[in-house]
């Protein structure tokens, strides 16, 4: 965590409820200007809901019951829907997992990018198209003039994600939220999109909150990582510190389950025993307790707070001191 700079985006105690269960439970993290924060976790751990909640775009079934999202000095959760609309796309943008489905199939990409610019800027159509053309060049799309007049179905997934990024960034927001932006793409295209995002951070100073389940993506792009498990942050740390010295059993086991190049052929990959608890199984204690080799009675009864381990590294575990045992299990 970059403690020197004051955070640009500050999420505090964000809690989202679906049908009475806290699917996002007290999530807090800060993102400094020009930094990349990764939210990592398995499917259903609440990372995508967290990202939607940042823009006030939760699905109908979900409801934010507590917490604040501060962008600089403004609390986005205190804004009316009307004020929030002015912030969306202009101050904070989001791109989604399925780039081709995120574009209107019946409208040319040029019209969609230009419309995104016109939503927040009172300019003529031709000015908006000029901006769109410039934006396509910025996200590395060759021959922008031709692309502007094409429809989403004429473009590849990677190309569509570049279009989505240009729509998201055309009004120069300070924060870009990227919900699994590379999951639906081929591996080579993934790398290109990540490179593009890194370049954007460097050139424009845009902060990024990237949601992923892919540790490779985290290692590639993130400055800080928050590992989420069953709606809560298990561990949050600068990326190097997290990979080198995980302070939460879940993170350690998760890292151990990533296949390695030197993994012996025809042997089982490492897995974490058990499964993620369902909403109705959320107990009072640590939600990872049932699968954790270090779990004690206390873990099942009392929820661990995020303990500060120094250097911006924090972990929600009662047994941080016993982490060497995990390393033996994981190895």
């Amino acid at each position: 965590m970059n403690t020197a700079a004051s955070p640009l985006l500050s999420v505090d105690n964000l809690t989202v409820e679906i049908g009475g269960a806290n699917v996002v439970d007290g999530v807090s993290f800060d993102v400094a200007p020009g930094k990349v924060m990764a939210l990592v976790g398995e499917s259903g751990c609440g990372k995508s809901l967290t990202s939607y909640a940042l823009l006030g775009l939760l699905p109908d079934a979900a409801r934010r019951t507590a917490g604040t999202v501060r962008l600089q000095d403004r609390d986005l959760t205190a804004l009316s829907e009307r004020q929030l609309r002015k912030a969306r796309g202009k101050e904070i943008s989001i791109i989604f997992q399925e780039p081709s489905a995120s574009l209107d199939p019946l409208t040319t990409v040029g019209a969609q990018i230009a419309a995104a610019y016109q939503t927040h800027n009172n300019v003529s159509r031709s000015e908006a198209y000029d901006r769109a053309r410039q934006m396509l060049a910025d996200v590395g799309i060759p021959d922008p003039d031709r692309r502007l007049h094409q429809y989403p179905f004429e473009l590849s997934g990677g190309m569509c994600q570049r279009i989505m990024i240009s729509i998201a960034l055309i009004c120069s927001p300070q924060v870009l939220v990227a919900d699994e932006p590379t999951t639906a793409l081929d591996v080579t295209i993934q790398a290109q999109i990540l490179d593009l995002m890194k370049k954007l951070v460097a050139d424009r100073g845009t902060s990024i909150v990237i949601i992923t389940h892919d540790m490779g993506v985290v290692a590639d792009i993130a400055d800080d990582v928050a590992v989420m498990y069953a709606g809560r942050i298990a561990e949050i740390a600068p990326v190097q510190s997290l990979f080198d010295d995980p302070k939460h059993p879940y993170t350690a086991l998760l890292l151990a389950s990533v296949p390695k190049l030197h993994h012996a052929p025809k042997t089982d990959l490492a897995t974490i025993e058990g499964r993620v608890p369902t909403l109705s199984e959320f107990g009072a204690g640590c939600r990872f307790a049932d699968r954790c080799p270090l779990a004690t009675e206390k873990c099942r009864i009392e929820q661990p707070p995020l303990f500060d381990c120094g250097g911006g590294h924090r972990s929600a575990c009662w047994h941080i001191d016993r982490m060497p045992e995990i390393r033996k299990v994981a190895a």
Binding site: R85, S93, F96, T119, M164, I167
Partner: peptide
């Protein structure tokens, strides 16, 4: 229910 509706709202449209 399609993604482009959510994406449209994410760019600031009602």
């Amino acid at each position: 229910s399609k993604d482009y509706v959510r994406a449209g709202r994410a760019r600031g449209l009602s």
